[in-house]
Computed example of a mutant assay.
Amino acid sequence: MEKENLMEKQTTNKRCLLFGLETRELEIDGEEKKELWVEGRAVSFNSPTVLFEIGETQYKEQIDSRAFEETNLSDVIFNYNHGGKVLARTRNKTLVVDVREDGVYIRARLDGTEEGRKLYDEIKGGYIDRMSFQFTIREQSYDKENHMWTVRKVKRLYDVSAVDIPAYDDTSIEARKNSILEADAQEQSERKAAAELSKRKLQLKMKLSM
């Protein structure tokens, strides 16, 4: 069974990264208010992350450095734990998404809403220091020897979030587990069939030589 090309996965995936969020305040000319910005890296390229384990085997994933070349970034939002009110958005220029050589970086302005200002204070105080991104995959490959998925192309980036507890999409992980188990079952079935065919050929050869 071909396992090197797992294409067109359309389920939404979440990945949590440990990269720290940084805060920055900017003075607004002629006003007492300040612009409240948070900055961080939402995606790291070519950096394997363990998705799950089966027995002693770790199954990992990495994002290819060219995965975002054709990605739809037209309307990405910034929020908290992938839910609740939108706190920043590319469409109104309060969120900047910057794809670089080593990953995807973001800058989000949070002073526009009460929830955003509260989240800014929590990030500044160190209570929240992790990021996650939610996306769909257009193309990926699987390295059987190293038990590694590589996301080759990201179809769309939906949101980047500040998160308190790392969490993967259980549905996505379960689907990947099932694909591994099904592929292994198929491979064992093919090996059994090949062994049976070899056995029959040997029996036939012995009969003909008698």
Rank of each mutant, 00 (worst) to 15 (best):
T49L: 15
I128S: 10
D98L: 05
Y59L: 14
D164C: 08
F135I: 05
D129R: 13
V99G: 03
E182R: 14
R89G: 01
K14E: 14
E190M: 09
T90D: 08
K60D: 07
A42C: 01
D111L: 04
R41N: 12
K155T: 10
M210E: 01
D169P: 03
L204T: 04
R117I: 05
Y168E: 14
N81E: 11
L36Y: 08
D111F: 02
F45I: 03
G30T: 05
V38Y: 02
Q203V: 09
R117M: 15
L17H: 06
E39R: 01
F135A: 07
M210A: 01
R91V: 10
Q58M: 12
E70R: 04
E8M: 08
T11P: 07
K85Y: 02
G40K: 05
I173C: 08
G112R: 01
K205C: 04
R109W: 00
L202Y: 04
E4N: 07
T57K: 15
N72V: 02
N81W: 05
N5I: 12
M206R: 11
E187A: 15
S179N: 11
M131F: 01
N5C: 00
K192F: 09
E35W: 12
V97Q: 01
K199D: 10
L73V: 08
D169G: 03
N46V: 03
D164V: 14
I63Q: 01
V104D: 06
Y120T: 02
R130F: 08
G125N: 13
G40Q: 00
E27L: 03
A167H: 14
R138C: 09
I165M: 14
L119W: 11
D129M: 09
T136C: 12
R191A: 15
G20C: 09
V160L: 02
Q134E: 12
C16V: 11
E190T: 01
V43S: 00
L21A: 02
V99W: 05
T113L: 11
Y105S: 03
L51I: 12
E2D: 04
R91D: 04
E182G: 06
D159Y: 09
K153R: 14
A67K: 08
E56N: 15
G30Y: 05
S209C: 07
I54L: 15
K192T: 02
V151Y: 04
A175E: 09
F19D: 13
L95Y: 02
E25M: 14
M210Q: 02
F19C: 08
F45P: 00
N81I: 05
S65I: 02
S141F: 06
N81H: 03
I173E: 07
E27M: 06
D102C: 03
A88C: 06
A183W: 12
V151E: 02
P48H: 10
M206C: 05
E139M: 04
K93A: 15
S189D: 06
D111I: 04
R91Q: 08
K207T: 04
L197H: 11
F133Y: 09
A175N: 09
E2K: 07
F45K: 00
I180Q: 12
K60R: 14
T23C: 15
V38M: 02
H82L: 11
D159E: 14
M131E: 06
K192N: 00
E122H: 00
R138N: 13
E190S: 04
R41Y: 00
I128Q: 10
S161Y: 06
S209M: 13
M206G: 03
F78I: 08
D111N: 03
M1H: 11
W149T: 03
V50F: 10
F68S: 01
S141W: 07
V86N: 14
M7N: 14
